[in-house]
Design a protein around this nucleic acid. Structure first.
Lengths: 326, 326
DNA sequence: CTGTTAGCGCATTCAC
DNA sequence: GTGAATGCGCTAACAG
């Protein structure tokens, strides 16, 4: 049998409230404190969190909704979210939505069920209606209605930097390879920054915009590259797609960076201490996680501050770009 | 304000117990059921899970402890655990232990705190004492005391297969590159299977066993390969290390598979639909997750069946091995 | 500083 | 088939 606080109180010869006070930071006289501690140890007691939660109406738990944890970018984000949360004693529910709105709603319901205090979500589905401003919610990379807090990297500047770095490294004919999301997202800004910078420098560029969900990604990339053999600088919408571009280049007997320079987006690494896969625009994942957690906990505690957090990105020089020329 | 069951009862003009029965599968007369449903919809009511949990002493929640979610193998495993759990309505707490026993114990305590019903753990730390047989616990890749359930891939056979495949593909001088864990683990069996097969075929092999935690992994691999230039077939303890071996080979101007064939372990992919990184021995991660969940839930419900699950591995032909010769 | 007490929201006996 | 009453384990307010 699991011991209860009542058992502890009896064993220690004190009242129930005293034991409770011991756990909630109240002052106890040296003697009673020791009696209580002994009883706790003897019974191997741990307070029942569900009873506690019922009483104080807090769970010290949040849910993280993301498309799939089986993706280096999201798993890195989850890693940092959990790490940040830990410092404040919060626990984390993990939800792989697979972009299924149904499942996202199910987790959003957990807030009403008092199972979690709030939610951090990377979601591209249409759950606007469920995300009200009363719900402690922080969105990543996606802008809901005005008063829903969101955290994002500066995708627009990221796109500009990608274009600039390719051009500065001697690329003359650029290309953007990416997808078109059915819902608006910060990702669109990557292309916007890229194309506007190209235009401002009067550098021509092509673009391959595949419809989501993408089918035959590899084939599409291959035929695009075949039809645009003069392209010598590619900006891919993210690193994973960048890897596919790289593999396709190999197949077409082109070398990177010698023949085609390539810059991705995200800054994926397979582990904390491994290398970046390609040259890339790195999102400050650790910072994004930290901000998201901080903002969420503030909301949970009734404080509402900033609702927009746009964090800086930076260029990572990897194996798929040449030395800077200018 | 959040509505309670009492509010629903009042609004529907029925008693509290009736509403409760509605949620717990009791029979209601058509008329009352509709009244209840209307009231629930009107108030947008969701049952408070903490109150429910307190009452029935179940949380429908489990915790997953792993070294770090920021690692493709673990994130794939977590993906499948969550997917399996979902089917049974369980929720998942994620814990990155970073191999810190303190943190592992903290999560194990959640069971006593009634915050989770059970635990699945991939842990190499010394937490034996905390893992008693009363605790619903399933260990992955690690054998605790006799009655603690564990799930693992057949690492011994995996090692044998790796050796066999390298030899069958014409490698004459093999090598094992890996680490030595301070605690016993199934991983040790990879080397055992490998070396025993080599011995049985009278094929010579070298081995590099780096002490954990590994420092200067790349340097150690490089110097090992430099000192054993005749090696033409490498079995690395896992895929991540395999990638490091591959990078080092490139640096040393050796080609894989032409000069050195390489087989890893795990069968890592960066996403569900991406490619394997190198030739490898694949663990049946999906199956392992499923078995772990099934066994855990059985334990939670008081049923105890098998306590040992050893699942088959298989060879994946990737870019770092040649065609089979024999 | 410590003991007593009243719920938190719900599931589950019992009567009816 | 339904309503009323009891308590799960705990916190917090109050009295002493």
């Amino acid at each position: 049998m699991k011991a209860t606080m009542k058992d502890v109180a009896e064993k220690a010869g004190v009242a129930l409230g005293t034991v409770s006070r011991y756990f909630n930071g109240g002052m106890l006289k040296e003697g009673t404190r020791i009696k209580v501690e002994n009883a706790i140890a003897a019974l191997n007691f741990e307070p029942n969190q569900y009873a506690r939660g019922l009483k104080i109406d807090k769970t010290k738990t949040i849910a993280l909704i993301l498309p799939t944890i089986w993706h280096p970018f999201y798993s890195e984000f989850a890693y940092y979210v959990e790490a940040t949360l830990e410092k404040t004693g919060y626990k984390l529910f993990l939800c792989n939505s697979n972009n299924n709105p149904e499942k996202e709603r199910e987790y959003i319901k957990l807030v009403k069920q008092n199972k979690v205090d709030g939610i951090i979500g990377i979601t591209y589905a249409d759950i606007d209606l469920y995300v009200s401003s009363e719900l402690p919610f922080v969105s990543i990379d996606r802008h809901f209605s005005e008063d829903v807090t969101y955290v994002t990297a500066d995708n627009y500047i990221g796109g500009q930097i990608a274009a600039k770095e390719l051009i500065d490294r001697g690329a003359k004919h650029l290309a953007f390879i990416g997808s078109e999301l059915p819902y608006p997202s910060e990702m669109t800004n990557r292309l916007k920054g890229f194309s506007e910078y190209c235009d401002s420098q009067e550098v021509p560029f092509e673009s391959l915009l595949m419809a989501e969900p993408i089918v035959n990604e590899i084939d599409q990339i291959e035929s695009f590259l075949k039809n645009h053999t003069y392209v010598d600088g590619v900006f891919s919408i993210n690193d994973m797609m960048g890897i596919n571009v790289l593999n396709t280049l190999v197949k077409l007997n082109k070398k990177s960076p010698e023949d085609v320079q390539l810059i991705g987006f995200d800054g994926i690494k397979l582990e904390k201490n491994s290398e970046f896969l390609i040259s890339t625009i790195q999102q400050p994942v650790d910072l994004m996680a930290e901000m998201a957690v901080t903002a969420l906990i503030a909301q949970i505690n009734g404080r509402k501050g900033e609702t927009r957090f746009i964090l800086p990105v930076n260029f990572i020089e990897g194996k798929t770009t040449l030395e800077k020329k200018y």
